[in-house]
Amino acid sequence: MLEEIRLQAEQAAAELLEAAHLKKGNLIVIGCSSSEISDHRIGSHSSEEIGQAVFSAIYEVFKAQGIYVAAQCCEHLNRALILEREAAELYGYEPVSVVPQLKAGGSFASAAYRIFKEPVAVEAIKAHAGMDIGNTLIGMHLKAVAVPVRLKTNRIGFANVVAARTRPKYIGGVRACYEDSRE
């Protein structure tokens, strides 16, 4: 089952990468409930193995393209995020002091903390795209205009997968012209 979950996570990440038109240095937020993946209520059956499998699969896809991954912690850490110090410094996010654990932060964020070269926690970000695996509510960490992205891979294990990209705000009214024509 872990290999199937890993493949689903990798496929969903690859689909989002293509659909969101992300560029090197962009930031993506991922929220993940290992409980939902294993067909349990969110926060009730955290699995270190599932968190590790999903994070490593997703991280490999985005890291290969130079895209920073931010792993959203669970509600027990107020949905703080774990990311590389380099990304936090690049975007001006101030680190806070916390280390995610299985029952406070979750298995996905804990895996990120172990895998990142120099992990830090921050309280909030404004990401260019995001993926929500298992109803973790990542919307607060996306830029202002989020556009839904339909993925063919809309489940990882038993968890629903919802994705989004962002775009600049359209301003100026009916006479304005816009650069972003991806919609």
Rank of each mutant, 00 (worst) to 15 (best):
I115E: 13
K126Q: 13
V122C: 03
K103A: 14
A87P: 06
S47Q: 01
V122K: 01
Y93K: 09
A104D: 08
S44M: 10
F116V: 05
V122Y: 01
N78T: 08
E89Y: 02
I82N: 00
G51P: 03
F108H: 03
I67R: 00
A87H: 06
G51H: 05
A53G: 09
V96F: 10
V98H: 14
E49G: 12
F116K: 02
V54E: 04
A121M: 14
P95W: 11
E89P: 02
R85A: 11
Q101E: 15
L90H: 09
A80P: 03
I58K: 07
I82C: 02
A111D: 12
I125G: 00
E84A: 04
A53M: 11
R85T: 09
E118S: 05
A70F: 00
F116A: 01
C73T: 07
S44V: 07
F55C: 00
L90T: 09
E86C: 14
A53S: 13
A104R: 10
E84H: 04
V96E: 08
A129K: 00
G66K: 04
A111E: 08
F62T: 03
A121F: 07
A57S: 15
V54Q: 04
S107D: 08
E89T: 04
Y113R: 04
R114L: 08
V122A: 01
V98F: 15
A109E: 06
G92P: 11
K117Q: 13
G43I: 06
S46E: 14
E118F: 05
S44R: 10
E75K: 07
I125D: 03
Q101K: 15
K117C: 10
S107G: 11
I125F: 08
L83Y: 01
E89C: 01
S110M: 14
K103M: 15
H76V: 06
A88W: 12
E48T: 09
Q52D: 12
V54T: 08
V61E: 02
P95Q: 09
Q65N: 09
I67E: 00
R79Y: 11
E94P: 11
G92E: 10
Y113I: 08
E86H: 12
K63Y: 09
E118K: 12
L77F: 02
K117A: 12
S110K: 12
V61S: 03
A127E: 07
A112M: 02
R79V: 05
S46L: 08
K103Q: 15
R114K: 10
H76N: 02
A124N: 15
L83K: 00
E60S: 15
A57P: 06
Q72I: 10
R79Q: 13
V96M: 12
A104V: 10
G105I: 01
A124R: 14
